[in-house]
Amino acid sequence: MNKFMWGCVALVGLFVVAESLKCNTCSVGMASFCFIGSTAECSTSEPNCFTAQAVFNATNILNLKRKGCMATTLCNTTSTGSILTADYTVSQTCCSTDLCNGAVAIQLPLTVALGAALVAIWSTFT
């Protein structure tokens, strides 16, 4: 009976490991472009997929995005901050099914991404 119980525990553990949530990841994104993206398998400490968006309040033009896995305590939160007198708001939303945080957007080379970011920032000051 004891061997049977340990066998059941091992089988349940196997299903728990096999059922890890898969999420889209994007380290740096703007609009519908993701500059560094892929998919990831979430850990037990970060069991949710998330999408975060940072919006600069003065212009609402430059929106930065991230995707990945996140701890439940950080889900569905909004925070504010500022960089060099530019205020921004970061909203984080979570979901809990495979790849529920949207498709990995079009990926561009980093040089194109930096150029687009600089043009967007420059156009807000001219």
Rank of each mutant, 00 (worst) to 15 (best):
L74M: 05
V55Y: 00
Y88G: 03
T93D: 09
Q92I: 02
I36G: 02
C42V: 07
R66G: 07
G37Y: 04
E41Q: 13
E41G: 10
P47L: 05
T39F: 00
F35G: 13
Y88T: 01
F35T: 06
A71Y: 05
T78A: 12
F56N: 04
L74W: 00
E41S: 15
T39Y: 00
P47M: 06
S91P: 00
I36F: 02
S38Y: 01
T39C: 02
T73D: 11
S82M: 10
C42H: 03
V55N: 03
V90L: 12
A86W: 04
Q53Y: 00
G68T: 10
P47W: 09
T80M: 11
C75P: 06
C34S: 08
S82R: 13
G81K: 11
T80L: 10
N63K: 15
T89K: 09
G37P: 02
F35R: 02
I83L: 13
L74Q: 05
C49A: 13
C49Q: 04
E46D: 15
C49V: 15
T85W: 04
R66D: 11
V55R: 07
V90S: 04
T77P: 02
C75T: 08
N48G: 02
E41F: 15
G68S: 08
L62H: 05
S79H: 01
N48R: 02
A52K: 07
S79R: 06
N60M: 10
I61N: 14
N57P: 04
L64N: 10
I61E: 15
T80I: 00
N63T: 15
F35P: 01
S82Y: 02
L64I: 14
F50K: 01
T85K: 08
C34L: 06
Q53N: 06
A58N: 12
P47G: 08
T77F: 00
V90M: 08
C42S: 05
A86K: 10
G81A: 01
I61S: 07
A86D: 06
N57H: 03
C75Y: 09
C69I: 11
T72H: 01
A54P: 01
P47Q: 06
S45A: 14
S43M: 07
G68E: 09
N76F: 01
Q53M: 12
C42F: 05
N60K: 14
